[in-house]
Design a protein around this nucleic acid. Structure first.
Length: 886
RNA sequence: GGGGGGUUAGCUCAGUGGGAGAGCUCCUGCCUUACAAGCAGGCUGUCGUGGGUUCAAAUCCCUCACCCCCCA
């Protein structure tokens, strides 16, 4: 073989793009048609098409990538469906902002041209987000890519709307909804974010209609008084019992309204009298319904006051009106006080405008029945959340569900498939666009102007992307999907609704496992946000450290159920690891010159080889367990340890001797084993560090094809070598003991030591050390290493080192400071004595012996022997050193 | 008001019933030709507080404190 030259340092830019293109162009991301296992499917949570990939997306998608690569290598047909979401409000906002920059409003273009314009923007942004997903290495099947407004998905949306309508689960009605005056649309309850803000609590006098004085109500929103239809008191409130049923006069409007009794009223709050504004407050809405009160809407859709308020206030926006009303109340002596008051104010989750409760005609999905089914599916064990505690969130939300407002007064989105006849008023809910009224045959029909909530298309995602409502092969093969990876912020919006839709339309859960990722935060624990400027751009991480470094670092830090706190520096972890992989490979490949691959026989494996196979085998078992229980950090830590600590620090170092020996057969054998191990390690690590493992794998002379397609290492009894493990463990203890002594005594590396190794009889590594004197000597920097079971320590010349099953004596009399050495051993002895004491206490406890598991008792006994041996040797060495003190 | 989470080394965090861990930082010594993005060695803990269960608690239960999130 020829030596292979690798660049001196790891430079991911040299190969990441090339490798991605190679994978993509060669269909590596498509589910294998040969794989016979049970399909493994993930649908990617579709990012907002006009959004930009942020760290949360990176985490989320890289974990999906890890899963899909693992299962693909395990031989399952693996499908990862990518796609994007049309994000109604957000996208419309983006386009409107662009128009505004040109001095235009969407109304200037008209609906049709505006939508055309939006499609153009969508196309442009789509390329960006796709490119970003590729850049970070997502191995999703682009041939399956979908967009929520594709023809197919649009058909799914329409089918689901019409069929729910037919089942009586969709209805239209005049209700109080959350309305964003900036976006000009209704929002669902869970699209409102509440922020606690300082405000004022105004105390306002309403005169009795009979002129007998005043009552006082407290309100944070005096401008809504024109929508007041009553004043309520608690029926149990003795102070006001007499007043119930009498009338008061609404100031400024001069309108009489009744005093009513309702137990909703909190007697302690304010004056215990509440103005009731059913059209502008959800609680008042409920009260209004209970008491059959009129609903007086005082707002226009743009948030200004309408004709239901006195003329002076019309066309004012809410805040202006509030000031004007307060001023006029003051002037009329109606305002008798105001105080600071913090309260929760709803804001639009897309634009942060204050939400107005607004009475309007909207479409709703009736949720109770579907929620029941979704709850049952969970209770029947068909769904598992990781971490499990999210199941509480899920079940709690479903148990307290409210109907879902799905109409949006936007132009961008799926238009509601409902038509109205302008001649006879007939309403049609149709799968195919009608051309005439089905009742009166009039051609004079128009479609509902509203569009559907974007989530009304995303909730179909796990099956609409696979071809539903058609009976497709994809649907048969890949549905239900396996795992959903998403953030906890959309358990309500999306996860629960997908489960409901799936159960409703396909009578099955959409996925069985739901992995909830943590939130990516900065080092101070703050959410990454544009306004704080504390975000990290994933592409910048890729640019600086490479996609592998980013992925490995995120996996390493992704402890189940925990948020991830990172800064740019954090990615050094992954970067260093990749660099280590690069250099270990570089070393091996530069030693290939003139070597040839030999077939590896079981009996040609030496102790170190067996040990390394054993470690690799154990690691494979640990990684499999970790991944299958969604413990990404455990998996990442396992490969880190086995590659760095075992392979690089011990195995490669140990094999340098055979690699540099004169014996060609020995060298060929060693190179062949190392290449085999390295190839296996690349396969093991590929899901976590994908590009570099591919780059390295393909450079290895003992591999063919791509690592992405290679089989994943599985734990195998044939690769378990506990004897080799015991030997190497013992050897390592010896080596560490000497190294530690050398370091403590500050003996410089160039000074080679004379060491006598004295094993107890039956010590497990004696033979190994005997036959590897040269190797061990290099580990400990010895010029002479004698093995002598009967060695009698030479007082005055050596320093003793003790280990389990052996002692060693180092000829460094001149180097030691006896007093500090005594101190060191003494403090060791104290620790050991304490440990022994604890163990003896347990073993002398009859309760312990009676109740503890037998393994626990055996373990304690083992510890006792170990501590006693340590103590004995330590005391002997102490005595030995004391003779030097004189 | 209801629910959930967190509190372990200087920092960021693993660790769910039997001898306190990792990475980073820090200290010491090394450019040992794969890697100074490295090697070898080392320091550091009342596992938030107080109680309980248990032969045995960082781990299970309860109390309290502080921090964070969600819902109303």
């Amino acid at each position: 073989m020829k030596a292979v030259e690798l660049e001196k340092s790891y430079n991911p830019k040299d190969f990441e793009d090339r490798i991605y293109a190679d994978w993509k162009d060669n269909g590596c991301f498509r589910p294998s048609s040969e794989a016979t296992g049970k399909p493994f499917t993930i649908v990617m949570p579709p990012p907002n098409v006009t959004g930009i990939l942020h760290m949360g997306h990176a985490l989320n998608n890289l974990l999906q990538d890890t899963l899909i690569r693992y299962h693909r290598m395990c031989g399952r047909p693996a499908l990862w469906v990518p796609g994007t979401d049309h994000a109604g409000i957000a996208t419309q906002n983006v386009v409107e902002r662009q128009l505004k920059a040109r001095g235009l409003r969407r109304q200037d273009l008209g609906r049709e041209r505006f939508v055309e314009e939006t499609w153009k923007v969508k196309e442009k942004h789509h390329a960006i987000i796709t490119k970003q997903l590729e850049k970070i290495g997502c191995s999703c099947d682009w041939s399956h890519e979908r967009f929520t407004m594709d023809d197919g998905l649009s058909r799914a949306v329409r089918e689901s709307f019409v069929s729910l309508y037919e089942r009586g689960l969709i209805y239209k009605g005049n209700y109080l909804v959350n309305y964003c005056t900036h976006c000009g649309t209704a929002l669902a309850d869970d699209e409102v974010e509440y922020k606690n803000l300082p405000g004022k609590l105004y105390q306002v006098r309403y005169p009795h209609a009979d002129g007998s004085g005043f009552i006082t109500v407290a309100t944070t929103r005096p401008e809504t008084m024109f929508g007041d239809v009553a004043v309520a008191v608690n029926p149990a409130d003795e102070r006001y019992r007499e007043l119930v049923g009498t009338m008061v006069i609404l100031p400024l409007a001069n309108k009489p309204i009744p005093i009513i009794a309702d137990s909703y009223v909190d007697m302690e709050f304010g004056t215990g009298m509440v103005k009731i504004t059913p059209a502008h407050d959800p609680n008042d809405w409920e009260i209004g319904k209970r008491h059959g009160l009129e609903m007086v809407n005082i707002l226009n859709p743009d948030g200004t006051l309408n004709e239901n308020v006195p003329e002076a206030y019309r066309s004012m926006d809410v805040l202006t009106a509030r000031k004007a009303v307060v001023k006029d109340l003051e002037a009329g002596m109606f305002l008798i006080g105001k105080k600071e008051h913090n309260h929760d104010v709803g804001h639009c989750y897309r634009c942060s405008t204050v939400i107005e409760p607004y009475l309007s005609e909207q479409w709703f999905v009736s949720m109770e029945q579907m929620a029941r089914k979704a709850l049952d599916a969970w209770q029947d064990g068909k769904l598992s959340f990781y971490a499990k505690r999210w199941e509480n969130t899920y079940s709690h939300w479903l148990g307290n569900i409210r109907d879902w407002c799905i109409s949006r007064q936007l132009w961008w989105g799926h238009r509601i498939p409902v038509w109205y006849c302008d001649s006879c008023g007939h309403m049609m809910v149709e799968r195919d666009d009608p051309s005439e009224c089905m009742a009166c045959k009039s051609k004079d029909i128009h479609q509902d102007t509203d569009v559907l909530d974007t989530w009304f298309s995303s909730w179909l995602w796990p099956f609409s992307t696979l071809g539903w409502p058609d009976d497709t092969d994809d649907l048969a093969r890949f549905f239900p999907t396996s795992t959903l990876v998403t953030g906890y912020d959309i358990i309500f919006f999306w996860v629960s609704r997908m489960i409901m839709a799936s159960l409703e339309f396909l009578d099955d859960v959409p996925f069985s496992d739901i992995y909830i990722t943590g939130l990516v935060r900065d080092k101070m624990g703050r959410k990454m946000s544009k306004s704080l400027g504390n975000g990290i751009d994933p592409l910048e991480v890729v640019d600086q450290y490479g996609a592998d470094a980013m992925k490995f670092t995120l996996c390493y830090m992704a402890a189940q159920g925990q948020d991830i706190l990172i800064d740019m520096e954090s990615f050094k972890l992954g970067s260093r690891f990749a660099n280590k992989m690069w250099n270990a490979t570089r070393f091996l490949l530069m030693n290939l010159e003139g070597r040839k691959l030999v077939e590896l026989q079981e009996d040609s494996l030496q102790v170190m080889d067996r040990w390394m196979y054993h470690q690799l085998n154990e690691a494979a078992a640990k990684v499999a367990t970790a991944i299958e229980s969604y413990r990404f950090n455990d998996a990442a830590q396992t490969i880190y340890d086995v590659f760095w600590n075992d392979f690089c620090d011990w195995y490669v170092e140990a094999t340098k001797h055979s690699l540099f020996s004169k014996d060609d057969a020995q060298r060929d054998r060693q190179v062949s084993v190392m290449l085999d191990l390295l190839a296996s390690l690349m396969r093991l690590m590929h899901p976590f560090v994908s590009f570099i493992t591919e780059e390295i794998y393909q450079k290895l002379p003992n591999t063919t094809g791509r690592v992405i397609d290679a089989p994943y290492p599985r734990h195998s009894e044939n690769r378990s070598y506990p004897e080799a493990k015991a030997i190497v463990d013992a050897m390592q203890e010896f080596v560490r003991g000497i190294r530690s002594l050398r370091s403590e005594l500050q003996i410089p590396p160039e000074r080679k030591l004379h060491v006598v190794f004295r094993p107890d009889s039956g010590f497990v590594a004696t033979q190994f050390i005997e036959s590897h004197v040269e190797l061990i000597s290099s580990f400990i920097g010895a010029s002479d290493l004698d093995i002598d079971e009967n060695h009698a320590s030479e007082v005055g010349k050596t320093v003793p080192v003790a280990g389990l099953g052996f002692e060693a004596f180092v000829f460094v009399r001149d180097a030691i400071d006896v007093d500090s050495e005594l101190k060191r051993i003494e403090s060791d002895l104290v620790k050991t004595e304490k440990s022994l004491e604890g163990t003896l206490k347990k073993l002398s406890n009859a309760q312990f012996l009676a109740n503890a598991k037998s393994e626990a008792v055996d373990k304690e006994k083992g510890k006792q022997a170990e501590f006693e041996e340590k103590l004995e040797k330590g005391r002997k060495h102490l005595a030995l050193l004391r003779t030097l003190q004189e």
